[in-house]
């Protein structure tokens, strides 16, 4: 009996082992196609970009290793400084307005209002629309004799050169960016609002809290992780903005709408300064990384915990 039992368990073990190996083979097989894409078009390119940022490569001639020269150049490049300032302005203006408006819209839509489907659809339309078509639509609206100036003219206001006045153009691009993005954050806020337990708000009402108190003492603290998240992603989005700038202003007039996303493209693919472009991109990457880490570290302190 005992003699028989030993080979049987051995057999069981080898069977289980064989099954495990088989499962592992299936596993590797299944991830391979996707993994190859990630490996060749995301993982390796990051390190490759880092290397390129240390060279003077311009496509036409072979790259020379020049150490940190590109990074030093960023600090002495007046256009880079202007670009970073524009990008900073872009983020500081667009993100708070976006967060405020989308939160307001979500709260309004969360009331029991008739025609909610119509409103939602209206706010989603710009989100699904391609940025080139949106650029075209707004170039016409913001043209010197466009819709906006004609409406303002009807109210006796002088026409504004929305896209050709260097003091105003960046604000116009920011405005279109906000217009296009409202529906996206609105839906994120709306989903978060609907997750707030009704009992909590009812209990507060029984305790005599009015709508304003309920909003600031319950809704806002419960939404704080989402507010934080939307803010960070908004800043990251500002750092990468390109399509609207390219199509509406090409970074002009002057360099007034040249933000970092556009400047990197211009350096790398217009002037073929691949190395310098890669260095600029890495500075932005570092900034985004710091923001993302900050998001995780800081949320523990001032964001209301879900637990």
């Amino acid at each position: 009996m005992a003699v028989e039992a030993i080979p049987q368990t051995k057999k069981k073990i080898t069977f289980a082992k064989k099954q495990r190996i088989q499962e592992a083979i299936w596993g590797y097989l299944f991830i391979t196609p996707n993994f190859l894409v990630i490996l060749f078009f995301t993982f390796i390119p990051v390190f490759f970009a880092l290397y390129m940022s240390l060279t003077d490569w311009n496509i036409l001639s072979d790259p020379n290793f020049i150490g940190l020269e590109n990074y030093e150049k960023i600090f002495s490049d007046p256009l880079a400084k202007e670009t970073f300032l524009n990008t900073f302005y872009f983020a500081v203006v667009s993100v708070p307005i976006n967060v405020f408006l989308t939160l307001l819209l979500a709260v309004l839509l969360n009331q029991k209002i008739k025609g909610i489907t119509f409103f939602r659809t209206a706010y989603y339309l710009p989100v699904i629309s391609a940025s080139v078509a949106v650029s075209l639509m707004f170039m016409w609206i913001l043209a010197n004799n466009g819709l906006l100036n004609q409406i303002l003219g009807g109210m006796g206001i002088e026409p504004v050169r929305w896209l050709t006045d260097p003091k105003i153009a960046l604000n116009s691009v920011i405005g279109v960016t906000i217009w296009k993005g409202l529906g996206l954050n609105m839906i994120i806020f709306l989903a978060a609002l609907q997750d707030i337990p009704k009992e909590l708000l009812e209990a507060a009402a029984i305790d005599g809290a009015n709508a304003v108190q309920k909003f600031f003492k319950i809704t806002i603290p419960l939404l704080s992780p989402v507010i934080f998240f939307v803010t960070i992603t908004g800043v990251i989005g500002s750092f990468q903005s390109f399509d609207l700038v390219y199509n509406m202003t090409r970074g002009g007039p002057g360099h007034s709408t040249t933000v970092i996303g556009f400047y990197i493209w211009r350096q790398a693919f217009d002037y073929l300064h691949m190395g310098y472009g890669a260095a600029l991109a890495f500075i932005v990457f570092a900034a985004i990384l710091v923001l993302t880490i900050l998001q995780w570290v800081l949320r523990k302190f001032w964001v209301y915990s879900e637990e």
Partner: peptide, 21 residues
């Protein structure tokens, strides 16, 4: 974990190296 980490890489950083690839 590597997958999750790559999700944090902004597309902008990849434009130049992917063009070269």
């Amino acid at each position: 974990f590597v997958y999750i980490a790559t999700m944090m890489i902004p597309g902008m950083v990849l434009l130049i190296p992917n063009f070269v690839v």
